[in-house]
């Protein structure tokens, strides 16, 4: 049976809370000898997902929690981020690469999560983000 590690944690809706969790996930990935590119992809996607949950989901209301669950094994890692906000429709978020939106200062997090993770999906009316990435999954831009 493949060894795996999983944890669940709840944090208040403060933007200061994210870095320690990022470090915890990175340490787990390094323990399982994931590549620097895998670590980069997951760290970036986790930060985007968590920031969305705290800022847009829970509206920085520290009485509301964000629940994070993470599971990692030799082949795959999965992260779920659940907030207690009003939810949203991901399809309603405009494509930030379109000319009319490209100079906006926000709105690129969903794009980055979709690109850097194999699977990125919102459930529970936009309150629960589920992300998965396989070990050594290719990134879209690989030329040097």
């Amino acid at each position: 049976m493949t060894e795996h590690v999983e944890f669940k944690v709840s944090i208040p809706s403060s933007l200061h809370e994210g870095l320690a969790l990022q470090d915890r996930i990175v340490q787990l990935m390094e323990r399982f000898a994931y590549s620097p590119r895998d670590v980069f992809a997951v760290r970036l996607s986790f930060e985007e997902g968590l920031a969305n949950a705290i800022k847009h989901g829970n509206q920085l209301d520290e009485s509301k929690l964000v629940m994070i669950s993470c599971r990692i094994d030799d082949n795959r890692m999965r992260v779920e981020i659940q907030d207690q906000g009003a939810g949203f429709e991901p399809q309603a978020v405009p494509d930030p690469t379109q000319d009319e939106f490209i100079e906006r200062s926000t709105g690129r997090g969903l794009l980055l999560m979709r690109v850097y993770m194999d699977h990125s999906e919102y459930a529970d009316g936009g309150r629960c983000l589920i992300m998965e990435r396989q070990r050594n999954s290719p990134l879209p831009i690989t030329e040097n």
Partner: peptide, 16 residues
Amino acid sequence: EYLSSAALGKLITMHK
């Protein structure tokens, strides 16, 4: 080594 979309937003504002 790392840059999030929030940082990209600041760079866009700086550009403007």
